[in-house]
Nucleic acid binder design. Structure first.
Lengths: 194, 194
DNA sequence: CTGATGCTAACACGACCGTGTTAGCATGGC
DNA sequence: GCCATGCTAACACGGTCGTGTTAGCATCAG
């Protein structure tokens, strides 16, 4: 067993190279050759890790969801329920370069997903997880009396979810909304639920 | 001057063919040949109307915004301010096949826009227009006393805008949110502003 | 040291890309 | 009826695509 290569590490390196290509050239211009060059390897080596372009795209989309979920779960240790809620929601806003990259890639792959069944499933899964997280945040706040006790959690989770995703998209695209205004808007929204 | 061909009509026919290709194959698989075949013409003919692929994409993106704007403006005749507000906002939700198509195309082109300066400008323009429409809706409702008179219009326009775009995206992608629940959520949101 | 192993890279292949160019053809004005 | 006009379609070009295939090479077990 020669050449000790961490397979997971390699997969992630290539996926991150794909992210950069998507950011630079757009999803429509992605080719495995470009991704391999961006990752500093040959396209033949890339194909030993991802047998097809579809696999590469699918893994890269899953990696975004995994990264975000892991960081969100890491905030479970925050004691203050209010700060914890905001910290989790902040993970899906493009507040810094890392999160902006993740959100841009996610948006590009989501936009491409209607035509790719594999991507569609992954996108749906991520959507359901974020919806669940929104609901969990609201029940958590309700338990501490920080929002109205008779809150319709399902309906408000849907609203919070739409608000967060919409705000994220507007920050990504526009010049009117900034990371700061988006963060404040989310916080203010939660405050109105009290 | 032989061959009387309505240039505008032809441009729109081709753009709508592009929409169908984007819906069927995704933005990443779009080629001028496919679009020409979908429109029932040769790629040579297409190039007489759109000199380049970039022009085709740009026009098609603008056409989405134009269609939505025209329909929204047509609702200006609705007397009841509440019904008028909901009718305008409904135009950016994928409530039927036509609107779903427009929203899918718009999402695909927005996702591609970071890498294409021309598309980016068009997307930005559309975003600003929708933001303005949200603000106009809120001031209109405030004038009739249907929302709180001391409403922070700019902040609430930002929230409404994010909510509408986020809900539209979730209906497009997911199976949890439907056109009906999205419409009701928007209406309920406006009600909370009273 | 040696051989087996699995990563690497280079090339091949057919297909398709965006973009030109050009010949032809159907149609309107005179 | 005939010519000019502008839409149409077909082909060419260089490039790049996704995907195989294969030879080589660096590495670790024994």
């Amino acid at each position: 067993m020669p050449k000790l290569i961490d397979h997971d590490r390699r997969q992630q390196d290539i996926a991150e190279a794909l992210w950069r290509v998507i950011q630079r050239d757009g999803i429509g211009a992605v080719s495995v050759r470009d991704v391999a060059a961006e990752a500093g390897i040959s396209s033949g080596s890339l194909r030993h890790v991802f047998a097809s372009k579809a696999e590469l795209l699918a893994y890269s989309m899953r990696l975004v969801a995994t990264r975000v979920r892991e960081r969100a779960q890491a905030h479970a240790s925050i004691a203050d329920p209010w700060q914890r809620a905001l910290a989790v929601l902040d993970e899906v806003l493009p507040l810094d370069d890392r999160r902006r990259c993740e959100m841009e890639v996610n948006l590009a792959l989501v936009a491409e997903s209607p035509a790719h069944p594999l991507l569609k499933d992954i996108a749906l899964d991520a959507q359901r997880q974020l919806r669940g997280a929104c609901a969990a945040i609201l029940t958590g706040l309700a338990r501490h009396g920080l929002v109205a006790p008779d809150l319709d959690v399902d309906a408000e989770a849907m609203r919070l979810h739409a608000l967060v995703d919409g705000a994220a998209m507007h920050v990504l695209l526009g010049d009117t909304d900034t990371p700061d205004t988006a963060h404040r808007m989310i916080a203010e929204h939660l405050r109105t639920l009290a």
